[in-house]
């Protein structure tokens, strides 16, 4: 650094360090708490002494959550839509971005505007629902994938990246008789791996977290996604929806908080698990997608 070190400077550094440490702890505490909570027993919670780590651990909550056929289906469906959705997005975005990045594409400026408008204006839930209905996609897993295939944002980001690829690559390929499709798939896509990886990650996160479309378009529990079951359990307080029903739970070990926490943990797990390894792509994504000089 360029400035002189002074006592007040050191003091500031110290305070800054402390402050940021606290910020970090505040950011992470709820997760740790929920993780701990998912292993607690009903009794310990009732004593009201639980802050972070349970004294006695119990796997009842996980047993219950993982044995729930809905949660298992939901997990599977979430994975399906995330993989399917991401592949669809990558393909479609590439197909859209390549023509728009070519100067010879007629009216590309207007087309870019045509695409950008959709970022700001939308018709609302009712027409969107009717559309999905008319397409016959109600209660079809495709209804979760097709509407999210392209976003104006991804298209523009990738288009800009393609534009930075030197024209000499394209020219050389043309001399070899390659068409646009060959150029895109053989040259541009391999050259754009980092940005495609970033888009893929963003799409994965988007799909994994999407819940409202599941609420709207999916009617059967077999095709429903994890986030909706999560919402039923965690937000709507319906750990158990059988009204006068019999249940086979060991109630002494059971606590609805632990069940909620366990559901949260298993939902978050895939994201948190991959995040540290792919962190640089996420941050790169912001830099690319964000606003820069």
């Amino acid at each position: 650094m360029f400035y002189k070190r002074t006592l007040s400077g050191y003091l500031f550094d110290l305070l800054n360090l402390c402050f940021l440490t606290i910020v970090g702890l505040i950011a992470i505490y709820p997760f740790i708490y929920v993780l701990g909570l998912s292993f607690t027993t009903g009794e310990e919670l009732a004593e009201g002494n639980f802050y972070l780590f349970p004294k006695r651990t119990s796997l009842v909550a996980y047993e219950m959550v993982l044995n729930d056929p809905n949660i298992r289906n939901g997990y599977l469906n979430a994975i399906l839509r995330t993989t399917g959705g991401t592949l669809a997005t990558l393909l479609m975005t590439s197909l859209a971005a390549y023509p728009l990045s070519r100067k010879k594409m007629p009216h590309r400026k207007k087309i870019v505007f045509f695409i950008l408008v959709t970022m700001i204006f939308s018709g609302g839930i009712v027409p969107r629902y009717l559309l999905i209905h008319e397409l016959g996609l109600i209660n079809n897993r495709l209804s979760l994938i097709l509407p999210l295939m392209l976003t104006a944002f991804n298209v523009i980001v990738l288009k800009n990246f393609f534009q930075q690829i030197p024209e000499s690559f394209e020219e050389a390929a043309r001399l070899d008789g390659a068409g646009d499709f060959t150029i895109l798939f053989r040259i541009f896509i391999p050259l754009s791996k980092p940005i495609l990886a970033t888009i893929a990650l963003w799409t994965c996160v988007l799909h994994w977290n999407q819940w409202f479309d599941g609420l709207l378009y999916i009617t059967s529990d077999k095709k429903q996604i994890l986030q909706i079951f999560l919402q039923r359990i965690v937000v709507e307080n319906s750990v158990n929806r059988i009204r006068f029903g019999i249940q086979d739970l060991d109630m002494t070990m059971f606590s609805s908080e632990a069940v909620k926490a366990a559901t949260v943990v298993i939902t978050v797990l895939p994201l948190i698990a991959v995040y540290p390894f792919l962190q640089k792509y996420f941050i790169k994504g912001i830099k690319l997608g964000g606003i820069k000089e």
Binding site: G42, F244, I246, M251
Partner: peptide, 12 residues
Amino acid sequence: FSGSLAGLMSRL
């Protein structure tokens, strides 16, 4: 009924 009030209380 293990989920009834009586069922819950007798175990808890």
